[in-house]
Structure formats: structure tokens, C-alpha cells
């Protein structure tokens, strides 16, 4: 489910012919980096393919090379240690939703990933792909930002770590260099009375790209006072964005309707959307506030239930 006509940030349309295109499936991170290094700048990392193959079909890209990262063990595994949940970049939505621990610890991230496309797309679409396709409307991204995810990036100089909100440069653009790719995402393990949630608005019940997305994470103390919070919005600006003002409105308070109204106002202030085939500026701004409130409420319910 690619966000077609997403913007001008796609790699150049390319002059390659379909007949010239190649495919490699390295089995190690190092081999993948080497394959990228050896290729020209029209090589693409290939994971689930649910965005790239649409872009190929719609003549939006003409890659010289697909580097399939699904045969690399690090991209394909979910691990949980004392501090973090690590999700391989090529883990599919279906695999993530079958991972009971991930689902229990990070319900918001998992439900965001589950919203990407149909059951068939879920069998292929990956967390890393949804992130690196860099659609402003990508469902997983606000949830990952709210949960505090950082990306493990492999490149010629080894691994580096970048917060998800800092990875995105604009519609269809990331801050990855041509020889780098995301290997996995590390998300801090929520503490007790800490939980996340994600909601999006689409005009149908399924099979649409988010018109607005809202991811929320909250931590409550024993008295129900919010001690930490992150709210992130999707599809209301060139990239998914963190809304610090919304967090400020919640931290140190018991979250009542007045606080929620401030959260909504902060969310709406953070919007810089466009009119397009999926929604209007006014609609997006209003609904951003609505979904911010709803997502925070769900996160609070979940935190309280712990």
C-alpha cells in the first residue's frame, strides 16, 4: 500500500530499462552494505516490497538493483531484553501481531503496524519498510515516535543509532545515505503503568492511507498523575512529528477533560497539513485534535490496567 504521488522526494525516475534491473538477496548485514556500496544511486533496499513494487508498476521508480534484506537474520527477528524490544526491519506486520510479548508490551506500535493494508499486505509489509518509505501518512511512524523508538542503521562505517523522528527528512525522503539501511528498531520497554496507543482516521474501515494518525504513550504514577508522555501525529505535516506541547500539557497532571482539551489544542497547533485527495487542511487539523484525545485516553486506560 504505497502512498502514491506522495511527493517529489522519490529517487529520480531513472533512465534504466526494466531489462537492466537486478536483484540480490545477501545473507549478512555486511554483504548488504557491500552490495549497496557497489551499486549506483538507483539501488533500492527491498523488504516487503508492498511499496516498492507499486512504485515500479506505476513508473515512479526504475531501480538498477533491489537488495533484498529478508535473508539477513538481524532484520527478521524480534528480541526482548531487560530494557528494549528490538524489531527487525524486515519483520512483517503479521509476524509482529503474532508476537505475544511485543503485543503486550507495545500495543500501540503493534496496532499501528497491523493497520497497514490488508491481511495479504500484512503478510509482506515490514516495519522498516513502512518507516523508510517515508510517507507522511505511514501508520507505524507516529506510534514508533510516541514509543520512543530508535533505528539501528548499518552503513560502510558500521552501525549508528538515530531516533525515528530524526530519521525522516520529508515526503519520501529520509536522512539515510545511499549506502545505509535500517537493520532494526529499538523501543524502550515500557515501565509499569506505562502504555501506548495508535489511532488513525480513514474514510473507509480498511484499505486506506491515514488522513490523520495519532500515536500516544503515557506513564502514570500511583496516583494517576502523568509523569511522562509522548504524542506524535502523522499525515498532518511533511513528516510525522512529535508534539512536545501536548506532552507538556499532560506531565505533572491528572488527565481530565481540561487537560485533554489542551492536548487537542497542542495537536492542532502542531499541524501543517495540505489539501489533497485524502482530506482538507481544516479537516486534518480538527481530526488531529480528536484523535489525539482518543489515543491518549486509550493509552491511559491501558496504563491504568497494568
Amino acid at each position: 500500500m504505497t502512498d502514491r504521488h506522495a511527493g517529489s522526494g522519490l529517487k529520480s525516475r531513472g533512465t534504466k530499462t526494466l531489462q537492466d534491473m537486478n536483484y540480490e538477496a545477501p545473507t549478512s548485514v555486511e554483504a548488504a552494505v557491500a552490495a549497496l556500496a557497489a551499486a549506483d544511486d538507483e539501488a533500492h533496499i527491498f523488504a516487503g516490497g508492498t511499496d516498492l513494487l507499486v512504485q515500479l508498476r506505476e513508473e515512479m521508480i526504475r531501480p538498477s538493483l533491489f537488495v533484498d534484506i529478508k535473508r539477513i537474520i538481524e532484520t527478521r527477528t524480534i528480541t526482548v531484553d531487560d530494557t528494549h524490544v528490538r524489531i527487525g526491519a524486515a519483520v512483517t506486520g503479521a509476524e509482529l501481531s503474532e508476537h505475544d510479548t511485543a503485543k503486550t508490551l507495545l500495543p500501540g506500535v503493534v496496532e499501528a503496524v497491523e493497520l497497514i493494508g490488508s491481511a495479504q499486505v500484512q503478510g509482506r509489509a515490514t516495519v522498516g519498510g513502512n518507516l523508510c518509505n517515508a510517507s507522511p501518512a505511514a501508520d507505524s511512524v507516529p506510534a514508533l515516535i510516541a514509543a520512543g523508538a530508535v533505528a539501528q542503521i548499518a552503513g560502510p562505517n558500521g552501525l549508528r543509532v538515530v531516533a525515528v523522528e530524526d530519521l525522516l527528512a520529508g515526503p519520501s525522503r529520509t536522512n539515510l545515505s545511499g549506502n545505509e539501511f535500517v537493520v532494526s528498531l529499538d523501543i524502550p520497554k515500557p515501565t509499569t503503568r506505562s502504555a501506548d496507543a495508535y489511532l488513525r482516521f480513514i474514510p473507509r474501515t480498511e484499505m486506506d492511507i491515514a488522513v490523520v494518525g495519532a500515536g500516544a504513550a503515557v506513564t502514570l504514577d500511583a496516583d494517576g498523575i502523568c509523569t511522562a508522555s509522548r504524542l506524535a501525529l502523522g499525515a498532518v505535516a511533511p513528516t510525522a512529528r512529535l508534539v512536545p506541547a501536548a506532552a507538556m500539557a499532560m506531565i505533572g497532571k491528572k488527565i481530565d477533560d481540561t487537560v485533554l482539551a489542551s492536548v487537542a489544542a497542542a495537536a492542532r497547533d502542531a499541524c501543517n497539513p495540505i489539501d489533497d485527495k485524502r482530506g482538507t487542511v481544516a479537516f486534518r487539523i480538527h481530526v488531529a485534535g480528536v484523535l489525539a484525545i482518543r489515543a491518549v485516553k486509550i493509552a491511559i486506560e491501558r496504563a491504568e490496567a497494568k
Binding site: 500500500m1 504505497t2 536483484y23 538477496a25 527491498f46 516487503g48 516490497g49 508492498t50 513494487l53 507499486v54 508498476r57 506505476e58 533491489f66 533484498d68 529478508k70 503479521a94 493494508g117 490488508s118 491481511a119 495479504q120 499486505v121 503478510g123 509482506r124 484499505m207
Partner: peptide
């Protein structure tokens, strides 16, 4: 559709239903 939006090409690949239009033959 060729873009994973209609499901007419659904087949089961290694136990999972997928859109055959969104998988490379090479894979």
C-alpha cells in the same frame, strides 16, 4: 490492479496469504 489493493491475485506463499502482484518472482 497490480498494486495490492484488490486481492484478486491472492495466493498462499509459505503458509501466508499474500498478493502475488507484490512479490517478485526472483524472491
Amino acid at each position: 490492479c497490480g498494486t495490492g489493493d484488490c486481492g484478486a491475485c491472492t495466493v498462499v506463499l509459505n503458509g501466508r496469504p499474500i498478493n502475488a502482484c507484490l512479490v517478485l518472482g526472483a524472491e
